[in-house]
Amino acid sequence: MKAGRLKQILLLTDGCSNHGEDPIAVAALARNQGVTVNVIGVLDDRQKEKPQGLEEVESIAEAGGGVSQIVYQKSLSQTVQMVTRQAMTQTIQGVVNKELQEILGEGQSIEELPPATRSEVVEVVEDLGEACELEVLVLVDTSASMQHKLPTVKEALYDLSLSLNARTGSNQFSIYTFPDVKHTIRRVIKWTPELGEINGVFSKLSSGGYTPTGPALKEALYAFTEKPIFRSIQDGEDPYEETGF
């Protein structure tokens, strides 16, 4: 099996959507298009309890085949890279499980294999995670309540690029913010292999009390599918492209 290409949307938000279509439905659609949706709910360091509406965070990620986490600002960096990597592993495991079922029959999965076989399979998954190409579209909620969290977000994204770029496989990142009055989302960083200098990225803030998470996700999905970033792989062997979940 050879390393393929993984596509992820990473949504950073701190509240529930209140405008437009259902983000859970859009996430399910994304998953169907082969794009995984991860969601991180960012809490204020001073915030004591979980605010209402953050259950959505988990539901969106679940529908999007991704990973979710609700965290305080101070653990944002470590969480962002962990969630991204977990989702990568999860996706690869999904592909491997599917192949296992083709070979061994229904109901077979990595965790049901006898230890000796499992031991080998997890190494394969690990190797694929190290070598695969990864495209991450970061979608940042820049509504008013997120404003003072944006410096932390910026730091976490730089940190994400540090973690992922230590891999053998190549990466592409892009950053979008929402809401944007005209186009729902706004591209602030176009596809780039490194998120080094992202100063001033969030300088232009969106105002207004509306959070169109669903429409924003959908635009992000379009942004993904419209632009092929890596030249498509010639032979049709690429497992992630093929399986199309």
């Binding site: 592993t89 495991q93 990595i110 965790e111 230890p115 499992r118 031991s119 997890v122 190494e123 998954v125 690990e126």
Partner: peptide, 10 residues
């Protein structure tokens, strides 16, 4: 997480 545990075993 059986995969992660197995990697540790390896």
């Amino acid at each position: 997480d059986s995969s992660r545990m197995m990697l540790e075993v390896n």
